[in-house]
Write a protein that binds this DNA or RNA. Structure first.
Lengths: 125, 125
DNA sequence: ACAAGGCATCGACAAATGTCAATGTATGCG
DNA sequence: CGCATACATTGACATTTGTCGATGCCTTGT
């Protein structure tokens, strides 16, 4: 087994023992992501990687009871109701927000666990 | 000034004092994001919100010296060299990766500060 | 000088994305 | 019932995005 790569740098084998592999919470910077994990986190990140959706999340977080309905959000965001509903659906599908229907209103609130998972995923733990 | 919104929920005024506003590091969950901050963070998040780019970052992080050249990455990622270069450029432009040219090779390494900034932005600080 | 290898850039193209207007669904009120 | 309100869904459209093949640039070795 060659210890030297084609370009002359020393190469060590990245054979991790099962104990070293992060079974619990995959992290960006500890070991190469599996294709599945990469897709999972990309899906969540994609949901958040939009200026409008970032503002929606922050508006909900700053709202009373940490929840808000669509009618609370359309005006501060400056977009139409269908567009806001569309963005909220993306965030709910990604597990970033939680939707609870009460009466005529849909109340959206944070799914803190998902944001925490993202935060720890990105931090060099 | 009405204390009750149209839908009957109690509303308290979110008038933050300047001291409460996060001047240093904007966080998703403390106060409504400005449009500029939303765009800034969306740009960084967009760069990372792709399965291929997540794997590139994790491959670089797991590589010796925490750096890798394009030729180290094409095969594990399973994409052509131009495509990999394209993804790396996006990550560099977003400040997630750093590029250093040595000889014929371009060595890519992590820009830890940016990932930390992202992580803290998402965490409920 | 020449050839080869590593990488960036360009042009093209299909697929995904953000937005809107129009419409549909369901809840509450007279 | 009938109407208004809050929200979701649909269809359409322009823009962006991910990928590739072809090509160009630059460094190294002969």
């Amino acid at each position: 087994m060659s210890m030297y790569a084609h370009n002359g740098r020393v190469t060590t084998q990245p054979t991790l023992s099962p104990a070293e592999a992060d079974v619990c919470c995959p992290s960006l910077t500890v070991s190469p992501l599996s294709i599945e994990d990469a897709h999972d986190f990309a899906r969540i990140l994609k949901a958040v990687a939009d200026p409008t959706r970032l503002r929606l999340v922050s508006l909900i977080a700053a709202h009373e009871q940490q929840e808000a309905c669509v009618c609370d959000l359309t005006e501060p965001v400056g977009l139409g109701q269908p567009t806001v509903s569309h963005h909220l659906k993306i965030l709910v599908d990604a597990g970033v927000l939680h939707r609870e229907k009460r009466g005529v209103w849909s109340y959206y609130s944070l799914e803190a666990a998902t944001l925490n998972r993202l935060s720890e995923f990105l931090s060099p733990g």
